[in-house]
């Protein structure tokens, strides 16, 4: 397993380089213009000058090379400088956003807290609710609990957040006035009161997101459990007199986790990716909002950097999922 992990990690480098090239070419090919949001009152030749100032006049391969150098050589130096107070990166040009003319990574770092607070919490809450629901629904298939669970999770999954988000805002912010409708990203938790406020402003986006996550994971959990509950080994386990809890929670659960682990692992990069629509509806302004804003403004360095960070996370978590498969089911061998 260790050699497998190492081999995969080594292999990940060319994979990621290739992915970054594909992303770059895709963005190059896509129509759009970083000057599209500049009002029509600014004449075209001025816009052309502005494009040149952004470095758009250079050929594509030079820009790609520049980005590679900036991302893989200069940004790590900046990180080292930030940690150890050294000055390796002084005078080097970092990856600069076209919208804000500031280093992309600074903005990403600024956005991570609210994304982790909201999307991360929702993910954990969603998983914690989904697993028991999935297990129990499968164990008592077609009971009222299973039926209700199916119904709620399917409704939850089929209602898009652009609607459910607005619905909870209208009910809980406008009519009842319980929670703020706009997330305050500058809010700092220092004492009990500010913590309560943080909870209040998180509760609606977290609920909306958790509903989707719960729906999805509980469905996979239930289906996978159902597959395993009828296997021969379950009968064997029961026959040799193991307690029902041990049978279900140890034997069946462990064997049912493979598709669930896949779904959860695929979801973790998505946490960092933020939740584009939910962040927009509640004005959480995390990574998701950053990405969609950058795409709309054709801020290519920003889009390139963000999607590449996601790619790294995706490759990493898929590797983790593969390792977990082996731990869950020792029969799986990769060598």
């Amino acid at each position: 397993m260790l050699t497998f992990t190492i081999r995969r990690l080594v292999l990940a480098v060319p994979t990621l380089l290739f992915i970054s090239l594909v992303i770059f070419l895709l963005l190059e090919l896509a129509p759009g213009d970083p000057m599209a949001q500049v009002p029509l009152t600014v004449p075209p030749d001025v816009k052309e000058k502005m494009r040149e100032a952004l470095g758009l006049g250079q050929p594509g391969y030079i820009r790609f090379w520049k980005w590679l150098v900036q991302f893989f050589w200069i940004e790590p130096q900046v990180l080292i400088d930030a940690i150890f107070g050294s000055s390796f990166s002084e005078g080097d040009l970092r990856v600069i956003s076209w919208q804000t003319r500031s280093p992309v990574m600074d903005i990403v770092v600024q956005r991570i807290p609210q994304t982790l607070w909201v999307v991360g919490t929702a993910y954990i809450v969603g998983i914690l609710i989904a697993l028991p629901i999935g297990i129990y629904s499968a164990y008592k298939q077609y009971s009222w609990f299973d039926q209700a669970g199916t119904f709620v999770s399917m409704i939850g999954f089929s209602v898009p957040p652009f609607f459910s988000g607005v619905l909870v805002i209208v009910i809980f912010s406008v009519n009842l006035g319980w929670f703020p409708s706009i997330y305050d990203t500058t809010h700092k938790v220092v004492d009990w009161d500010s913590f309560v406020y943080q909870l209040q402003q998180m509760i609606m986006p977290v609920t909306v997101l958790a509903l989707q996550i719960t729906a999805q994971i509980s469905r996979f959990m239930r289906a996978s459990m159902l597959d395993n509950l009828n296997q021969d080994y379950v009968r064997t386990a029961r026959a040799k007199g193991l307690g029902e809890t041990t049978v279900v929670m140890v034997h069946v659960l462990r064997n049912s986790m493979i598709p669930v682990v896949t779904v959860i692992a695929l979801g973790v990069p998505a946490i960092f990716g933020g939740a584009i629509i939910t962040e927009q509806v509640f004005k959480v302004n995390g990574i998701g909002q950053l990405l969609i804003g950058a795409i709309q403004a054709n801020d290519l360095p920003m889009v390139q950097t963000l999607t590449f960070i996601f790619a790294v996370l995706i490759v990493l978590f898929n590797l983790i999922a593969d390792v977990l498969y082996g731990l869950l089911d020792p029969r799986i061998r990769y060598d």
Binding site: I169, S173, V174, S181, Q280, V281, N285
Partner: peptide, 21 residues
């Protein structure tokens, strides 16, 4: 505090309906 982001509907709602802004 000058907050940005979201959509025009939400902005209008925050001023005229909830009074947060």
């Amino acid at each position: 505090t000058l907050k940005g982001g979201g959509d025009a509907t939400a902005a209008g709602r925050a001023v005229m309906e909830t009074g947060e802004f």
